[in-house]
């Protein structure tokens, strides 16, 4: 059984993003980039499935610039077997990413796709759902628990009021939520080993998919700043301020 894990290179989650002064985007020059945290969780889950003997091969795929090779090497160091970089310097919208992933899936025929629920840059929370709709495969989003047995996946999902469990026959698209697992740190020997694992680079054009942007970015602006607040000395002062000054109690 084969599992495909799409991973995205994004701004490191510890970095505070800064908007460019010309309002054309977020400044990513000389900023630390890492694997999207939700993608790390997806890789971890796939590797655990392999360690449990449920799957035999974990393939990581990223659509992005040449530097996304680093992200793929991280996936390989965590335990993925091989990687595919679909190279492009363009910023793709979720629909385009989903279409390219579909083309990769048509070639690779995985039994399972485990991916992040959301990328922390675009915050779209859309790609997995779109991919499921394009493929006509069942969708299990926001997974906090995954069990694969035989040709069936049972998935516990984080929903508005608590948890929901659904089941679906393979092949299926899973999107990972925060509590699916705690991703491992790659060990130094595994980082060394990962350098020798296969990483194929393909030109995005070779998939013949229309990835042209559909949306026009008019501007990217700084959100309004909150005015500075004050410190109060005691709980009683706080209650008095909330009643008399803020009028919220």
């Amino acid at each position: 059984m084969k599992v495909l894990v799409p991973v995205k290179r994004v701004i490191d989650y510890n970095v505070k993003p800064r908007v460019k002064s010309d309002e054309t985007g977020v400044d990513l020059a000389n900023v630390k980039m890492s694997m999207n945290p939700f993608c790390e969780i997806a890789v971890e889950e796939a590797v655990r499935l392999k360690e449990k003997g449920v799957v035999t091969e974990v393939v990581a795929v990223s659509i992005g610039p040449a530097q996304a090779q680093e992200t793929l090497r991280t996936a390989l160091a965590m335990g993925a077997d091989r990687a595919i970089l679909v190279q492009t310097d363009a910023d793709l919208e979720p629909l385009a990413v989903a279409k390219v992933l579909k083309a990769v899936i048509d070639e690779e025929s995985p039994n399972l796709v485990v991916m992040g629920k959301q990328a922390i840059d675009g915050d779209n929370n859309a790609t997995g759902q779109m991919l499921s709709a394009l493929l006509g495969w069942p969708q299990a989003s926001f997974a906090s628990k995954l069990e694969v047995s035989g040709d069936k996946a049972t998935v516990t999902r984080e929903v508005d009021g608590g948890l929901q469990t659904i089941e679906a026959p393979l092949p299926v698209i899973i999107t990972a939520d925060l509590r699916l697992n705690e991703p491992r740190y790659a060990s130094l020997p595994n980082i060394m080993k990962a350098k020798k694992k296969p990483l194929d680079t393909k030109d995005i054009a070779s998939y013949g998919v229309d990835t042209a942007p559909r949306l026009k970015v008019v501007k990217v602006a700084e959100p309004p700043k909150r005015g500075g607040g004050i410190k109060v000395e005691t709980a009683a002062d706080l209650v008095a301020k909330l009643k008399n000054e803020a009028g919220v109690l």
Binding site: I11, K16, V26, P94, D123, R214, L215, K219, V220, P223
Partner: peptide, 28 residues
């Protein structure tokens, strides 16, 4: 396209949405 999580309607085809954990507001 999917236009996720809008916080403002500028006009019938222009929308504002937070990106990067709300550290930027994108008008599309």
């Amino acid at each position: 396209s999917h236009i996720s999580d809008i916080v403002e309607v500028v006009d019938a085809s222009t929308f504002v949405r937070p990106i990067y954990a709300g550290n930027a507001l994108e008008t599309v």
